[in-house]
Simulated scan of single mutants.
Amino acid sequence: MSSKDEKNLTQVVDKIAKMDEPRRSTMQRVHDVITAAAPTLKPRIWYGMPAYAMSASTPALITLRNDERLNLAITEKAAFRAAGGVDGQLMPAAWYFETVDDATEKRIAEIVRSVVD
């Protein structure tokens, strides 16, 4: 891991550590899921949010927000595929959550892998 990647990872971990409980634990769990599901993604801060990109110098593909609700989002920089079916041309791009159970963890991992595959 390069020194830039290490610095960026530290910034993301610090950002999560500054959150109040129980959100801190939830966001840490989501961070762990993202880094395990797509180890090639590099954590970084993107517009003040924990985010994940292909490199330290490329735009973020996935962001985590800690606003009124917790949010996992795919940025416009990710390759979008139309959802098809009843959703037509719409592409799901954001998911809100308050807690993470095993099923939600599995779905987050699927979403993250779909961005990097």
Rank of each mutant, 00 (worst) to 15 (best):
D67L: 12
K18F: 09
L72T: 00
N71D: 07
D117V: 10
N8A: 15
K7Q: 13
E98Q: 10
D5L: 12
K4A: 15
E76V: 14
V115H: 00
D32G: 04
A93R: 07
T10Q: 14
M91A: 13
S55G: 11
I111R: 00
I16L: 14
D20M: 15
A83H: 03
F97N: 00
H31Q: 12
R107W: 10
D117M: 08
I108E: 00
V33T: 09
H31L: 13
Y47S: 09
M1V: 15
D102E: 08
K18I: 13
E21S: 05
N71C: 10
D14R: 09
I74T: 03
M1F: 15
M49H: 09
K7I: 14
E98Y: 05
R23K: 06
T104P: 02
D32H: 05
M27I: 12
M91Q: 08
L72C: 02
R23P: 04
A37C: 07
I111Y: 01
M1C: 14
A78R: 02
P43V: 06
A37K: 00
R23C: 03
K42S: 09
A78F: 04
K4M: 15
G84S: 02
K4D: 15
E21D: 10
V13H: 02
K7V: 14
K18D: 15
W95Y: 09
V12R: 00
S25V: 14
A17G: 14
M54Q: 07
E110G: 01
L70R: 01
D14E: 15
K7T: 14
R24L: 11
S55K: 06
D117E: 13
R29N: 07
L72F: 11
D101W: 04
V116D: 06
W46P: 01
A93V: 11
A93H: 09
E76I: 15
P50L: 05
S25Q: 10
F97K: 00
R113T: 03
E76A: 13
N8D: 15
V115Q: 01
E68A: 12
M49C: 08
T99P: 05
E68H: 12
D67P: 05
Q28A: 05
F97C: 02
T63M: 07
V86F: 07
R113F: 01
R69H: 10
G88H: 00
N71P: 06
